[in-house]
């Protein structure tokens, strides 16, 4: 077994430890001990390692998602204030067939979809790969399927698979 099974996770934990306490040599040692144990514990829970195929695309994904979250924040806030375009708003369920199978990729997609106001991830069927999404302001269903599949899933497929 490797000494540092999840090097990136361990490094991140040391960093968070030092942010929350102080940047001193003593805290570095203490934080490193905690992080190494936590990394080994995590490896015992999940044996398979995450492999990032294209880490350079992560920054692009983060920027796209941040812009989308800001935009949909404004959209949902306006809908709440106007009482749903004065009763004209419809919400509904959308079924989206996903090609993404990698668990970490799916987790990232769930995070993106739920963090964006206006869409909520409800259920995912691992056998058929179908995702059940609830959309706050459902204008056209095909547009939402297209948005999830082309805007996020294509990028996540490149990063993770």
């Amino acid at each position: 077994m490797r000494i540092l099974p999840h090097a990136l996770l361990t490094l991140l934990l040391v960093l968070v430890w030092m942010v929350l306490t102080s940047f001193s040599p003593g805290q570095l040692i203490l934080g490193s001990v905690v992080a190494i144990f936590a990394g080994r514990a995590f490896a015992a829970l999940t044996p398979d390692r995450t492999r990032l195929r294209r880490p350079d695309l992560i920054l692009r994904l983060v920027l796209i998602v941040a812009a989308d979250i800001a935009r949909s924040n404004v959209a949902v806030a306006r809908l709440i204030l106007t009482g749903g375009r004065h009763g004209q708003r419809h919400s509904g369920f959308v079924h989206i067939p996903l090609d993404l199978r990698e668990p970490n990729g799916l987790a990232t997609l769930a995070l993106i979809v739920t963090a964006t106001p206006g869409t909520a991830w409800l259920d995912y069927d691992p056998d058929s790969g179908e995702l059940l999404l609830h959309v706050f302001d459902l204008v056209d269903e095909a547009g939402w399927i297209d948005l999830v599949k082309n805007r996020y899933e294509a990028l996540l497929l490149e990063i993770f698979q």
Binding site: I69, N73, V76, H134
Partner: peptide, 16 residues
């Protein structure tokens, strides 16, 4: 008015 609409509302507070 319905639960699945309401589930979208708190995400405003938790995101921006």
């Amino acid at each position: 008015s319905s639960f699945f609409d309401r589930i979208h509302a708190p995400t405003l507070g938790t995101s921006w």
